[in-house]
Design a protein around this nucleic acid. Sequence first.
DNA 1: GACAAATCCTACTCTTTTGGTAGGAATATG
DNA 2: CATATTCCTACCAAAAGAGTAGGATTTGTC
Lengths: 154, 154
Amino acid sequence: MMVSTKGRYALTVMVDLARNCGDGYVSLSDIAERENLSMKYLESIISILNKGGMLNSLRGKNGGYRLAREPRDYNINEILLLTEGTLAPVNCIMQDGVQCDKAATCSTLPLWAGLDKAIENYLSAITLEDIIEGNRKKLLGDYCESCGPADSGN
Amino acid sequence: MMVSTKGRYALTVMVDLARNCGDGYVSLSDIAERENLSMKYLESIISILNKGGMLNSLRGKNGGYRLAREPRDYNINEILLLTEGTLAPVNCIMQDGVQCDKAATCSTLPLWAGLDKAIENYLSAITLEDIIEGNRKKLLGDYCESCGPADSGN
DNA sequence: GACAAATCCTACTCTTTTGGTAGGAATATG
DNA sequence: CATATTCCTACCAAAAGAGTAGGATTTGTC
């Protein structure tokens, strides 16, 4: 599994906030209840998002969190990168440019590099807005069977 | 990390066999030495490949393994799928069609499904032959900076 | 000023996965 | 029959994953 619950729940939280933006600050307990997830666990996850500048927070009564930008201005790659640390499919792809000592002669490395790029490419093209709007064409691309002209709306 | 050493080493073994095909059976100790990997560990990995019908094997002296098909007839997706069990980026994407009970209303599921497809799509299009030939255009696609006309050969 | 509701922070823990190792049985060749 | 090989089962230590626990701090309201 490339993405753990940490990244998955982080995205869930971001989507939840995107849906409820404009209503001031949203408390974590509300999110946890709506999404049916452990509030204590979400706490540690939302803290990463907050420190990473994805959110604004307010302590105390009526406090909570809200998105720092518009939903369309977040791409999924940055959200997952922040929470997961890396999305590299194998650990011989380093995010900071450091390389395995066999890299120069490794014949499988280009495959992993290509896979890494394919993943990044996909995730970078999707925004939070695409998700809340259920933009199936963009999310599922050519693979989406129900994206034809007969489909309703999106 | 989506792909563990198991899948990575499996691919390394397959590439090694592809490079040395035609020379009869190749012993595991030869592969382990060439690739500088633990023979004992490779044993457990090559056993998966063998049982999955990817290889032919011969016991006893002068025995070993060889590819069951031509390098061009293996795609990377099937090799990794066999050794890793699944390549799904999150565990809410089930390979056997079983779904999470929230699937119908989950707004993030299409993203994970799309990512899963993007990965499968990439890996299915690459063959063992592409790797041994170092087909950078196919492996790295549009992201390959050295694939331009100025590049040598491929 | 007390209280309640919220974020913030540190530490702990249980389970599963990963990445192997060890030892020997079965089999084919010379 | 000796040797080189695959095959098979079991074991193990370290790391990662998935949370829990408990409390300190801050802020709005009565």
